[in-house]
Each structure stands twice: as structure tokens, then as C-alpha cells.
Design a protein around this nucleic acid. Structure first.
Length: 480
DNA sequence: ACAGATG
């Protein structure tokens, strides 16, 4: 397992089957453009109204919008992998009359030879995944329209915007031109690693804008201006760098929000995100905005479609396609905390022989610390990560886990989004997640056992005191 | 409400 460390570190974020096929169930719809959609400047406040907004909302588009069929190559279906997560239907909603042809090869995208080399040699990709085949032409074809795209982790989502950023950067302009905002520093770092790997031969510079070493505050204050062409970071740091004029937005061409539904949710990072968008738009009204997320609930979907430019494109995976039948999910009724810990110990860690790596999600930092102590006292080697740890500790714990040095990791929602580690086979939800959406990405791929204190009905409910029930369940999930 | 990221 240790031998796989290097490869698994970054590439697996897009653990797409290299040759995943361009499927056949693509629906194309006209986006209704009857209602006037305001731009983000209007949503935040009314202090300014960009002139082009006024004019564009004036031209009542009576002409019929042209719908361009995405070209679909049915012969590609034979390349489909057995459990290709992309074998689901995608709904594409295009705006205006820009024709988009689905890309069946990376060559179709007019990428630079250096970038192609990175895709083939470093990333070991062969062909675009389904979501890449459809989204990349939308991202890379002028006029560069905003895009709202729903695609789950492991589908090649990261590649979509990383490739988009790399290929829209002008290599000769040595200033920031692409910016990606992520909800956590861990995800920022992970995305940067993918970008640097993919862009290895391009010479494009990139940098993480996340909080620096917590110990020496002086240092973070004296952080030098950013010259990197691509910047990936968390909202607070990005916002601060921009207000300190250490991150120039004048050349910004692409603005990406990863985990966009969370970044733009009211109880998420909405304020920071809108502030950043607005500041960029003030200097650069034509900056392309890309929103990627595994999930968009109706409220957020509604909201984000108002804050992007009116002529944006959309890609949505049909809701019922999001969860895989092959993924086993269990709930175990546990009357109290002690039973939960005993279940983890005796019924899961002791019983499972092919567990691979396991992540235990908890709802609070306190709960994390408590469970950590309990399992360590029982003789297990576990590590724990949450936001109250120092950045150095966080980096160390994530690295050790990604390198396969630790088997069981306890985490708060810190890692619930976007965290990808191929070796993780099992997710245990110690507490019933407050927000199920948060855990979608790992749930999608892993066996998932929830320890619940109330009798929530579920498809499979092993009895916690029956070893036999657990054996059956673990065997069924391939963990025994 | 709590998690996250910051001032």
C-alpha cells in the first residue's frame, strides 16, 4: 500500500476511469430566458450597476434560442468501465447560439502540447470523462461563458476546472489570471497538487493562498504579493490578499468556486464569495465564473443562477443518478456512546479484514477528541483532524493518511467535502450527519455505516449486538 | 447549531 503513495496523492482526485465513455443519455434543453436575471453586483447591493448589464437586459430576446445537439459517439460506449460512475445521464442547458461539440478526445480541445503531455504522461488520462467531454468545450470556447456544473467527486470534476484554468491562462502574462476558491485549506492544497501535476510541462506558475503557519503571525502579515498565474485558496485569505492589494485582479480571466453550493450558501461562505466576485468584476466585468459542486439543492441552484452572468451554461446530473446502487449503506441503532464505540471496535475494526482505510466522521471537535481518546485507550492507532489543530498538524495528519501510514482517521466536516483518497473503503458516521449533502462525495464511493441513536429506518440495519449481522453486512460490502 | 475560514 505504501508503494502507491506517490500516485494516489493527487491524481485520484480525478479518479476517473481514463477511458470513460461519452455516454448516450444526454439531454439538451433550452434555458428559459424569460425572466430577467440580475447579476451578482445587484444581488449584493445596489451601489453599482455595470453598464453592460443594463444593455444586455434590454434586448428582449424574441429570437428563438438555438439548441445545438451535442455530438455523441455511440461507439465510445465500448470503452465503458464496469462500474463507471459516469454512466449516468447529464442534462446540459446551453444559452445563446454558441455551438458546443462534445469532446471525445483531449485533442478536440485545442490544448497546448505541454498540457496534453501533462494529461497523458502525468495524469495518465486517455480520454475525457463524460463530464469533461461536455463541460470543457463550454469552458474553453469563446465567448467564455459562465458555467454551473454539477458533477460528483471521482467523475473528473477537478480536471474540468483545473484544465480550464491552465488552458485559459496566457503563459506570457506573469500575473494572476485564474483564481479558484475552496472551502478548506486541505481542499485548496489538494486541488493545487492536481493542477501542478497536470500543468507540469506548461511552465504556468501556481500558488496556494491559504492561512500560513499559525505560530508566527508576523510572517503572514508580511506575506509577499502573489505573482503566480493560477491561485487556489480559501475565502478568507483570498479576500485579505485582495484587500491588501497583494493579489491583483486586473488580469483575472477565470474565477472558479469548488464545492460551489457550499461556497455560495447562506450558511456557508456566501458573503466572502460574493465579495470576491464583486471585487473582481469591478475591474474585470468579463471574468468567466465557473461553479462546480457535487450537489446543488433548489435554493442554492436558484441563487447561483442569478449571480452568474445571464448567458451562462449549465450541466446537471440527474438526481436519481447521483447515488450508486453498488454502494452499500447501513445504519446501526446504538442506544448510547459506549455502544457506538464498542460497535466500532468489536463489530467493525476487529471484524473487518479488508477495511482498507477508514474515515470516521463526527459532528463536533469535542466529539472528535472524545472518540480519539477512547479508541487510543482501547489500543488503536488512530489520528484525528479538525479545525482547531494547528495548520502544521493538519497538514501532517492528512499527509500521513494519504501516504497510507495511518489506517483510521477521525474527522469533522473538515474533510467531508472534496477529500479524495482512493484507499478509503469505509466511512463511519459516528454522529448522524447534520447535513447529509456534505458527505455525498465519499458516500458515493464507499461503504457507509451510520451509528444512529434514534430508530431511523434504513434498508440494512444490522443489530449492534449481533456479530452475525455484522459479518453478513461486512461480507456483503466486500469488507470481510 | 456546528462545521469551516478569518479578523
Amino acid at each position: 500500500m505504501a508503494g502507491a503513495t506517490e500516485a494516489s496523492a493527487s491524481a485520484e482526485t480525478d479518479s476517473v476511469t481514463p477511458a470513460s465513455a461519452v455516454g448516450s443519455n444526454i439531454e439538451l434543453e433550452n434555458k428559459p430566458q424569460t425572466e430577467e436575471i440580475k447579476r451578482w453586483g445587484d444581488v449584493v447591493d445596489d451601489e453599482e450597476q455595470p453598464s453592460d448589464t443594463v444593455s444586455s437586459s434590454e434586448d428582449k430576446v424574441v429570437e428563438e434560442l438555438k439548441v445545438d445537439k451535442l455530438s455523441i459517439d455511440d461507439t465510445k460506449k465500448i470503452n465503458k468501465f464496469l462500474d463507471d460512475p459516469e454512466d449516468s445521464s447529464i442534462q446540459a442547458v446551453t444559452s445563446g447560439d454558441t455551438p458546443y461539440a462534445s469532446a471525445s478526445t483531449f485533442e478536440d480541445l485545442n490544448l497546448s502540447p505541454e498540457l496534453l503531455k501533462g494529461l497523458y504522461v502525468e495524469m495518465k488520462f486517455q480520454k475525457p470523462s463524460k463530464i469533461q467531454a461536455i463541460s470543457l468545450p463550454m469552458i474553453l470556447t469563446p465567448p467564455y461563458k459562465d458555467l454551473i456544473a454539477q458533477a460528483h467527486n471521482g467523475s473528473g470534476k477537478t480536471t474540468c476546472f483545473v484544465l480550464g484554468m491552465l488552458s485559459r491562462v496566457n503563459p506570457d502574462v506573469k500575473r494572476p489570471q485564474a483564481l479558484c476558491i475552496c472551502p478548506t485549506r486541505e481542499l485548496s492544497i489538494q486541488n493545487l497538487e492536481v493542477l501542478q501535476k497536470m500543468g507540469k510541462y506548461t511552465g504556468i506558475s501556481s500558488e496556494c493562498a491559504v492561512p500560513m503557519e499559525s505560530a508566527n503571525n508576523d510572517r503572514s502579515r508580511s506575506r509577499p504579493p502573489i505573482f503566480a498565474q493560477v491561485v487556489i485558496g480559501s475565502p478568507g485569505t483570498i479576500k485579505r490578499l485582495m484587500s491588501q492589494k497583494k493579489l491583483s485582479v486586473i488580469d483575472m480571466r477565470v474565477l472558479v468556486f469548488d464545492e460551489a453550493d457550499h461556497m455560495l450558501a447562506k450558511d456557508g461562505f456566501q458573503d466572502d464569495s460574493l465579495r470576491i466576485m464583486k471585487d473582481i468584476e469591478r475591474f474585470n466585468a468579463h471574468c468567466q465564473v465557473l461553479l462546480f459542486s457535487a450537489t446543488f439543492d433548489e435554493t442554492v441552484k436558484n441563487f447561483v443562477s442569478r449571480i452568474v452572468k445571464k448567458d451562462h451554461n449549465q450541466l446537471f446530473v440527474k438526481k436519481e443518478e447521483l447515488s450508486l446502487d453498488s454502494v452499500k449503506q447501513y445504519k446501526v441503532y446504538c442506544p448510547d456512546e459506549m455502544v457506538k464505540i464498542l460497535v466500532i471496535k468489536d463489530r467493525i475494526l476487529e471484524l473487518g479484514e479488508n477495511l482498507g482505510q477508514t474515515i470516521i466522521f463526527v459532528n463536533t471537535k469535542r466529539s472528535a477528541a472524545m472518540l480519539h481518546k477512547a479508541l487510543v485507550d482501547l489500543g488503536y492507532e488512530v489520528t484525528t483532524i479538525h479545525g482547531a489543530l494547528t495548520h502544521e498538524d493538519r497538514d501532517k495528519i492528512v499527509k500521513e493518511f494519504k501516504d497510507g501510514l495511518t489506517q483510521v482517521l477521525i474527522s469533522t466536516d473538515l474533510l467531508a467535502r472534496g477529500f479524495d483518497q482512493q484507499q478509503v473503503n469505509l466511512v463511519i458516521n459516528y454522529d448522524l450527519p447534520v447535513n447529509m449533502r456534505l458527505h455525498q462525495s465519499l458516500i458515493m464511493r464507499c461503504t457507509c455505516i451510520g451509528l444512529v441513536e434514534q430508530g431511523v429506518l434504513a434498508a440494512k440495519v444490522p443489530s449492534w449486538n449481533s456479530e452475525e449481522d455484522f459479518k453478513i453486512a461486512l461480507k456483503e460490502a466486500g469488507l470481510l
